[in-house]
Design a protein around this nucleic acid. Structure first.
Length: 259
DNA sequence: ATGCCTGCTTGCAGCAGA
């Protein structure tokens, strides 16, 4: 079973890229972030045409998340929005149980400029995620929390760490918050299989960053404890970042053994 | 220190992204 995460940076603007990638990689489950469309403009039919059902949680202009599954699966227990603050109106979390696995699709706030109110919002969001992650571990089902965490966990995850020290994705607080989630027992799939490799998932549009491989890793697939025994592969489809009209992120995916 | 690109808007300039 293949499970992927992809920050598409505008699902309608990137639709040809998304459809091409889905048909190439054929993930069973794909979590999307930054769909940047209101609910009524989600391209449901175009996805159905190539064999994917979807649930989504959109908003106008910004943010927005979705989960796609192959038609043979079913969505159960869909939750829209990160629990813990009814006043938070950003669409940054959607969860569903699929084939017995709870899938939490995350678009964590970026937090720039930092320090400031946006950074405070990021850290408050992180705290709620930490609480949710802890609760999910008490359930009997396996759980995967995946998406754009907007956190570069270590120096190994940036092409030039010193260039990022003033950026909210590299601040000590979010790094510590990410670490504290891992400390609950969650497994960072990419690092579990590739502990020492420089692997990036994002390259900005400026300065020819992709061709210089000036990237960072901040899209993560976290497995609940025990699931690592099923982990066969964890990869980044970095070639997708080289396509025309592409997102600034590349898709990340894992392959799990069938039990 | 800033802007570089790119997508989004009851749009054509300004905001957000990271």
């Amino acid at each position: 079973m293949k499970i992927a995460t992809y920050n598409v940076n505008g699902i309608n603007g990137r639709l040809p890229v998304l459809l091409r990638w889905l048909q190439e990689r054929k993930p069973d489950i794909a979590c999307l972030q930054e769909i940047k469309c209101p609910n009524e403009k989600f391209p449901e039919l175009a996805l159905l045409d190539i064999g994917y059902k979807a649930v989504w949680h959109g908003q106008k202009s910004w943010n927005g998340v979705a989960i796609l599954i192959k038609k043979k699966y079913e969505f159960e227990d869909v939750i829209r929005g990160l629990p813990g603050n009814p006043l938070d109106d950003h669409s940054r979390y959607i969860q569903s149980k699929i084939n017995g696995i709870i899938i939490g699709c995350i678009y964590l706030p970026n937090g720039n400029p930092a320090p400031g109110p946006k950074f405070d919002y990021k850290m408050a969001w992180f705290k709620r995620l930490n609480t949710l992650a802890k609760k999910l571990l008490k359930l009997k089902s396996p759980v995967i929390l995946l998406g754009d965490y907007n956190v570069v966990p270590t120096d190994l995850d940036a092409y030039k760490p010193e260039r990022w020290v003033n950026d909210a994705v590299f601040f000590p607080e979010p790094k510590a918050a990410y670490k504290s989630i891992l400390k609950q027992g969650w497994i960072d799939s990419i690092r579990y299989l590739h502990p020492d490799k420089k692997i990036f998932t994002y390259w900005d549009y400026f300065r020819n960053a992709f061709n210089r491989d000036a990237g960072i890793r901040m899209d993560h697939i976290l497995l609940s404890p025990g699931m690592e025994k099923l982990l066969k592969k964890a990869e980044v489809d970095r070639h997708v970042r080289g396509w025309e009209k592409t997102s600034d992120h590349a898709p990340v995916w894992i392959e799990l053994k069938d039990k």
